[in-house]
């Protein structure tokens, strides 16, 4: 065993890249859940984003256009969930699972012509001056633009929920849709917007997989990343900052165990892979034992004005 072979600078740099797709998807899902909607279809939206982004990037030669298209495509798909759960009052759990089915099926049909094709690459964006700094330069400041964007998004969501009126309304809707409705807020509209935002973020996450992380289109490319994003939101107890911590932890455990293996350590892989979920349960228990309501109170409940 040679643990000295693990370079902590490179380790953190690679955790940042590896966590970006789940971070993007999780921050979007957090906003959705904050509005009181549980969308279990993250996996389906992510993979749809991945395929749409890839197709557009290959056809236009522009990865950035690809990202935009991935976000729009996944948001469009999430609209079907929005219409069903918000306008037609269908059950959110079942609809979310259906969304995953639809997304997985649709994406592989769209993706057929793009198998084996190479995507245009997204250049690394070395931030001037900062990227030349020793240690932190390589670790934090020489990634591609989406890594920074994902972190920026976390800050933006945090500020939006904490400081803006719209953020306050969104939280009110998630805590008690009946009171929010009584106060004259458009519950359904707020939730639809949140669902679209969640879809777009999941789409960006998927796009990051197909355009940067892998970068190629293959069926089943997300391989469960959407489900991990759902877990991260819970782990984070619906706080933006902790979503980032959670994504880096969940992504980091995989990277770390692979690094340990490469360094020659015997690693109990199954135990390590299960540990983030166990930690998440512990976090949930702690926040609920403290008497704080972790989850938005209206999470998963349908709303109808006549209720």
């Amino acid at each position: 065993m040679d643990l000295g072979a693990i370079n902590p600078i490179l380790l953190i740099a690679s955790i940042m890249v590896s966590a970006t797709p789940i971070l993007l998807a999780a921050i979007g899902e957090m906003v959705v859940e904050k509005s009181g909607v549980l969308n279990l279809g993250v996996e389906g939206m992510m993979i749809t984003g991945a395929v749409v982004a890839f197709a557009v990037a290959v056809n236009t030669g522009s990865p950035l256009l690809g990202f935009a298209a991935g976000a729009v495509g996944a948001a469009a798909l999430s609209l079907s969930f929005g219409i069903l759960t918000q306008l037609l009052m269908s059950n959110q759990v079942a609809t979310g699972l259906g969304l995953t089915l639809v997304g997985l099926g649709l994406s592989s049909l769209i993706g057929k012509p793009y198998e084996g094709v190479k995507a245009p690459s997204l250049p690394r964006l070395d931030i001037p001056v900062l990227s030349d700094l020793p240690v932190v330069g390589r670790m934090l400041f020489s990634h591609d633009i989406m890594v920074y964007l994902s972190l920026l998004l976390v800050v933006a969501v945090w500020a939006f929920l904490k400081f803006t009126r719209a953020g306050l309304i969104l939280r009110a809707v998630g805590e008690s849709h009946d009171s929010a409705h009584a106060l004259g807020y458009k519950v359904v509209r707020v939730r639809l917007l949140a669902i679209l935002f969640g879809g777009a973020c999941a789409g960006l996450g998927g796009a990051y997989l197909s355009l940067v992380r892998v970068p190629q289109w293959t069926e089943g490319i997300t391989a469960g990343a959407g489900w991990i994003a759902l877990a991260i939101v819970v782990f984070a107890s619906w706080r933006a900052g902790r979503v980032a911590v959670g994504a880096y932890l969940f992504g980091g455990i995989t990277v770390l165990q692979l690094n340990l293996q490469a360094a020659g350590a015997q690693v109990p892989v199954a135990l390590l892979s299960a540990s983030p979920y166990v930690i998440t349960i512990l976090v949930l228990v702690i926040i609920s034992a403290r008497g704080m309501h972790g989850a938005p109170a209206s999470l998963g409940r349908s709303f109808h004005a006549s209720n």
């Binding site: 693990i6 490179l10 997989l209 990277v255 293996q261």
Partner: peptide, 27 residues
């Protein structure tokens, strides 16, 4: 020789992580 066990036949992101871990260690 450095061996890493991915415990999957197909998981693109994890495979990339495995390659990255080895590259970072001089493989």
């Amino acid at each position: 020789l450095v061996v890493t066990w991915a415990y999957t036949w197909f998981d693109p992101a994890k495979e990339a992580d495995a390659a990255r871990a080895m590259l970072d260690q001089g493989v």
